[in-house]
Design a protein around this nucleic acid. Structure first.
Lengths: 209, 209
DNA sequence: AAAACTATGTATAAGCT
DNA sequence: TAGCTTATACATAGTTT
């Protein structure tokens, strides 16, 4: 039995509040349903209880309704745990960093290639020149090393061939009707010349520091 | 006077439907408000009329409520005009391109600085060396040009100062009781020394190619 | 805690202005 | 079209089971 009209303010008694919540919640959803049917309207209602539990009602698909609301209002609502505007901002920030890095590298490259020097100070030019000289030295050393290795390989190959020839000569002695061999000195010259040709033209450039 | 209980189905009479919509809508919002106050709940209601007009109610900020709903359900609601997955994919693709460019530039830089040459062929080393030599030549030319310009400027300044001195000497002759002036030769020496000091130490480095 | 009850307040359909 | 009235249906606070 209702004693009199109630005040619309928070019900302090927990049990009573929870009961009222349950009753009025279903009443609200019933009214929402009736409104949607009677008047052919799209209705959605979302209720979070004091304890944080969600109750919802929608006359049709609640997602569609919320989406329609978002479009109507030109806003959007995103769960924190999903790829968000925040995430996109992060990507963009990263891209800005990368663009800066690319620009930095390009400028550095340009300077190392002797371009875009118009606004360099003498001091800066000196630093660049020093760096380039250092680089040149390293590259030339590396080239020289590679060349030496090649020469060593060729010499080894030459000795190998010479040994082979000696061995073959011995066998020729055993079998005098073998194919004719060129004289030892000529052969050696030829081998060295042939094998050197591929590198000699480079030597002036490669080995003059 | 209500004749009897009504059927919950669409009201066909347009006027009557609109009146009912208006009445029940405000009734629903009133109930929603009461529920939120009595039970300390977070309540939001969204209604689209048949004509597509939006009416909403929220006990607090409706955006917060919808966002909370999105988080609770792990869903998100996006207006069509907002950044899509497609857009994010585009950004990522761009980033891949940028990463590749950075790597390419870094490798190029390294080679120009004489690093990471271990796997370069002789031919490649030669190309790098040629590039570096070209760069060095350009940088040195530029340095020489800058230096020449500085020297020219200094010479001009020196001439200017000399002229000034000559003029001042003339005036001293007109007004013998003026403040004492240093001797002409001493002054010229001082000026030239001062102006040169800033550059002379660099000259040896700058001009020796 | 949940469901049922019931007296009473509230919402509202239809009529009226 | 809107606002007021009023009879009636409906919702629900407080109580009981």
């Amino acid at each position: 039995m209702v004693r009199g009209k109630i005040q619309i303010k928070k019900i302090e008694n927990t049990t009573s509040r929870q009961v009222t919540f349950s009753k009025r919640r279903s009443g609200l959803f019933k009214k929402a349903h009736e409104l949607s049917v009677l008047c052919d309207a799209q209705v959605a209602a979302i209720i979070f209880s004091q304890k944080g539990r969600l109750y919802d009602f929608a006359s049709s698909d609640i997602q569609k309704t919320i989406k329609r609301y978002a479009e109507y209002k030109g806003e959007y609502f995103v769960a924190e745990s999903h790829p968000t505007e925040q995430y996109v901002q992060g990507l963009k920030k990263e891209m800005v960093t990368m663009v800066e890095k690319i620009e930095m590298l390009e400028v550095h490259n340009q300077k190392l290639m002797g371009k875009s020097l118009a606004f360099c100070s003498l001091k800066e030019l000196q630093e660049i020149a020093t760096q380039i000289e250092k680089s040149l030295h390293i590259v030339r050393s590396r080239k020289a090393k590679l060349y030496e290795d090649e020469v060593e390989k060729l010499k080894a190959k030459g000795r190998e061939l010479k040994d082979e020839r000696v061995r073959l000569s011995g066998r020729v002695g055993e079998e005098p009707s073998g194919m004719p061999m060129p004289s030892g000195s000529k052969e050696k010259e030829d081998v060295e010349t042939d094998l050197s040709i591929g590198f000699r033209p480079d030597l002036n450039i490669l080995l003059v520091p």
